[in-house]
Design a protein around this nucleic acid. Sequence first.
DNA 1: CCCATGAGTGTTTTT
DNA 2: CACTCATGGG
Length: 978
Amino acid sequence: MDPILDGLNHAQREAVTSSGSILQVLAPPGSGKTKTLTARVAYLLSHHKYQPQDVICCTFTIKASREMRERLAKLIGEKLESRLILGTFHSICRRYLVKYGYLIGLRKGFGIADSDDTRAIIRRSIKRLKSSIEVKAAQGRISRHKAHGLSPDALADRAKAEELELVDIYRDYESALAASNLLDYDDLLLRCGDLLRDHPECVSNVQAVLVDEFQDTNIIQYELMNLFAAKNRRITIVGDPDQSIYGFRSAEIQNLKRMQRRYSNTTVVLLEDNYRSAASILNAAQEVIEQDTSRPAKALQATHSFGTLPVLRRLPNPNAEAQWMVLEIKRCAAMTGGLLRMSDFAVLLRSASLSTQIETAFGRAVKILLNYMRVVSHTGHSDALMNIVNVPPRRIGDETIKQLTSGAEKAKIPLWNFIKDVIQGRRSTEKKLQKTAEQGLCTLVNLIEASRQKLQECEDASAPRVLIEFIAERLSFQEYLIRTYPLDEDSRWANVRELMHQASEVAAFEEEEVDKEMDLPEIEGVQQQQAHSGEEALTRFLANVALATEITTREESKEGDQPSEKVTISTIHAAKGLEWPVVFVPAVYNGSIPHSRAEVVEEERRLLYVAMTRAQALLYLSIPIRQPRLGEGEDGATTLTPFLPPKLTKTRFRPTGPSLHEKVVYAIADILRRPRPSLDDMYKGLEFLPSTLDDRWTPEGEEDHSKFDSTSTSHEASGEPNPKRRRSDMNQGAKSTTYMSSAGYTMNNSTEFTIPTTVSSGFTSARDYIAANPVPPAEPASKPPAGADADAAGANKSKPLSSTGRKDGLTQASISNFFSGPGSSQKREPVLPSHPQPPPSRRYEGAPSQNQRSGARSIVPVALSSHRVQPRPLIPTRPALEPTNPNGYTWLAAPSKPTLKPARTSMTQEQSNNTSGGRAGADEVKPESSTRGFRPATTFHSTTMSMVQQAPRRTLGIRRSMNGWQDRMKREGGGQSS
DNA sequence: CCCATGAGTGTTTTT
DNA sequence: CACTCATGGG
């Protein structure tokens, strides 16, 4: 039979082969959504003979589109795949606008305003108008209005008093964008919509349109979809209302319904077999989502065995929570005999503000260069210009800038032109500029002019790279970095190198496939706009960067390219669509999971649902029972998220990590469809574990003091039989290993570096841990040089640097801090904490100032990972273009076969690991998902671990180390001790 | 008057 | 880290 249909179940096949022109595929987590969509594309090409360039396939994230491209390449061959019009809505729109934007009066060479630009513009307006609205709030509201197609004037009309203030800002913002010839994210969609409405001929070739993650579309995207398909009205969408988590971005869950109304011939196919997770995980997740009573009931059948119950763990505080995760990760890795490697673990957070910011911060060096390039590419980019006028410092301060901008405004010419005129004596500012400032401007102008010249000379795709190098050179950029960030200049410089690398890669890529992906098919009678190739290469490069990109760069290094062994840390949003064997969802307390600022609680619940359904074999939720900083109650006691009511936690979760005896391990292997490890392997890693059980803290979340001496294990907690392994007692030996370099390195710089080294008693420090483990599965490091390092470290740190005394108390506010935090000292990577037991009973609370080696400070974080994944939208609270009828879907068509699966799916008791029976489901259906093929995603932000490994990975841009945390730690530590 | 530097505060989710 | 506010040098 048709190879395209291989491995598809009944419902999936039905979806793929459906003859309906308007098709909705409702696909819950793990049901083979992407697989179905790609197969559908292949099917349309082969059975309907559509040309690939006549098929549009939209996703929401770059990552998703990349994945789809890869899968399609395998299915239909690269040749066809490369001709498909496939990408995020934003990138597809950009493509159309580049080619046909002139038809609606778009100026050539427009740039894309990323959120920094946007924020800067809005900030300025707010300041000028003396508004009291917060920048971020204004930014969000404006975007929301734009997403709903409301112009400033339209908004003014229905103005409520308080919106009036916003209207002015909005207007201002729009004109600033126009003045710089910039389009923001919303504009890309809006303007493309305008284009296609006025000139439908641009898409007259389109035979079929496919949209992934449809529940995340907003009104504009929905409209775009219709416009793309205007000619032939053939649309396939896949989505799942339960995974709608992008409402804040104006996604409208009602689009599903809306689409059904619009196309009366809509066919709906429902997929309901889950191939990803253990039944126990699915059951728990299902109960969470079903609390939303407005949601239509929907079945989700597990095809895997029950597995082992998910965990809901209580811990004393966020710090302990982080340590616990690390311990559990080590325990799992060690006790499963090589079955799980670091990349199989993920920590999913509700908010990643910390790490996110840091990452962006680290990207600053890169950003500076990009802004130079943007100015070179288009001198009208006043914003980019303002960002770099005084970077590196040129004695051009606020006053000078004010003079210049107001002068430019009066003269009605772009800032750049005005500046140039001023320094060339053709114009002058109201007030005379300082001599020094004038000189500074002069150098700047010279540099930009020289760069533009250079660009003109460069007629090919290498332009981006040539320019970066030229500019960096002329700025003595590396020296500037050293001067500015003495502590970690090199990691920043590394980011720059990375950028250069990306630039050259892009160049190579484009050379060899010039007419590939970026070109749209020629349409008779409609002319496409062409451009100077050097300039065009530059613009494109910049656009890709702005679109968050991760320009793919296929090849990720040839040698040693193991999928990088790191634990992934990501936001839940970014994790959508992905899966991992083991998933941790920390901080499930009220205020975090239903986020305190969340507008729609249901969305938060879905978020938890999405997080839980990312797990294949093991799922851990955890909560610090006290959160010192953001004290919720007195003493910062937290309350469990309302999404996990007692009824649920009692039946669907266990209080501590499962004991990992053979059966459990086999079940995990089966679910992952990996070979079962041998008993020998399973025993191997044990001796380095502090305990074979999750018993360092009591199930109630207290530190378990009894633990130190005796071996009394409280395994009962887990409800499973006591494994026969005994805990190896490792006290002493510092088995740590290698962390040499880091220590050495940092020491030079003096400032602190403390942290990492603190190894406490005999465990490996986090850093060692990673150093030792990163690669192969867990093989613990060999033996240790021990002692010395720890001492050194200790000594060093004991000297608190100057005033900022760091203490080590480390109470972080949240886990994310923890992870990112401490461990890193200067350039190192993140480390994983390790540390199981605190040595002697030192508790940290008591001794704030000293003790660095106490267990407390052990921080160390995990490798922080990398990753960011895809996002998707959600429902807004807006005033509605349509009656909101939350979820009243009607299934127009029935799904797959009635499915009766043997009841195996839900055995209620945990012990169901029975036998290998676990694989039952798997036999009937060919497994599909599985983890293969997925890489940890390199993304824009990769973090640090990479440094540990030799080969730096490539990602677009930012590689970060976690400095910066140090100050933070110092501060926090200090504060709290007092 | 203008610019640089240091201290203090605070942070959902993302194309 | 970004942002804001205060102080000190030119």
